[in-house]
Design a protein around this nucleic acid. Structure first.
Lengths: 207, 207
DNA sequence: ACTTATTTTAAACAAATGTTTAAAAATGAC
DNA sequence: GTCATTTTTAAACATTTGTTTAAAATAAGT
């Protein structure tokens, strides 16, 4: 019964890779099975259907995202340092999984129901105490008074979009991967400074 | 031969709507045909194939985007006013076509070749003189010295992402459409202030 | 070793899909 | 009205696709 890696896990890994790059309806069960080296029927033996398998992968992807955020929020650091760290971690994480943001957004649109809070993402974030921490800082006046949803939007916009827009940017500006990487590295610093200046306006700027 | 609207155009309109919401492989030619009220064969009579039709729609969508940018850039206004106007126009445009950003990014990933600069987007932008205008402002010191690709990224990130992430945000924060709209309206102002402060740091803030 | 349960496969199924063919309907020219 | 051209349709074609069935191979229990 024991293998190096269980068949079930091998299928999940392959499915993740294929779904990520091609989307749910952009690939076939046979394509996934082939990339694992197994029969199509085995897919439905372990998971009941293509759709069920996809839901699993999507949920896991979302979870990965929240995990990387939680990890930073839990750190015992001043808010401003956490902000820098969050941005750095996000860029680092997304450089390793550049297809993830697009996959998640496209995936959520595919599933009309989108039972997104089964995994209780909001609860996991709350447990880190980050919301109270921001609230306190906002009352103290060290942090700008902005709704936390808007704060989230600011972070995600400026971290996720630069990664997911690679093809568009390279296409419009006619640049290659190397140049794009350079722009991305610079952007990471730009975003850090811009967001910190905006959210913590009273801090001395190092300029 | 003359109709109120030509069949060809009706197909394009329907295809645009369907492709936008479901993606290339997320819909069928029959689905498009049905929504026009015509036979499947007529699709391939006017356009040669599903793929060719899709390319047309995608190209047009990209063109719409650039058009709305060009329109603002051509205005005879100080850079800072143009910035405000660009952000307002982008939000306005995207509220009307919220599926567009995701459609474009997913579409570009689907087409491996992505002959994106057939429409010469860069050239159209150049012709507005916006690049020279920014370069001059940067030398004068009124605008922060940031590569124009990064400037583009800043604008797109902060305008496009908030729109395309609606389902994700509503799912995580468990908010309804109305609350999301309120966040979006506020975000529009946030983005304007943040970007202007960052790009034109020497201007007096109205605070 | 024999039996039972689990894992894997080959083959088949029915439905869906992109595309084509050939004929009918509509339109325009004269 | 007749003929030729354009537009539209119904039907068919060959694949593809998600899923199932039934049997074979493997592992586990005793």
């Amino acid at each position: 019964m024991k293998k190096d890696v269980s068949t079930e896990q091998k299928i999940k890994d392959a499915a993740r890779k294929v779904f990520m790059t091609k989307g749910f309806s952009g690939c076939t069960t046979r394509e996934i099975a082939k990339s694992v080296g197994i029969n199509v029927a085995l897919l439905n033996y372990y998971f009941r259907s293509k759709g069920k398998l996809f839901e699993l992968i999507l949920e896991a992807a979302l979870s990965d995202f929240v995990d990387s955020m939680v990890e930073v929020f839990k750190q015992d650091l001043p808010l401003e340092s956490k902000t820098r760290m969050l941005i750095d971690k996000e860029f680092e994480f997304l450089r390793k999984h550049p297809e993830l943001p697009l996959f998640i957004h496209a995936g959520l649109n595919q599933e009309s129901d989108a039972e997104l809070d089964q995994s209780n993402f909001l609860g996991r974030l709350h447990k880190t105490g980050i919301f109270e921490e921001c609230e306190k800082a906002q009352e103290e006046g060290s942090m700008r008074k902005v709704n936390m949803i808007n704060v989230t939007l600011l972070f995600m916009s400026n971290c996720h979009f630069p990664i997911m827009s690679k093809k568009l940017i390279c296409g419009i500006y006619q640049i290659d991967n190397q140049e794009h990487e350079a722009r991305l590295n610079e952007h990471q610093e730009i975003v850090k400074e811009m967001l910190i200046n905006y959210l913590f306006p009273n801090t001395n700027k190092h300029a």
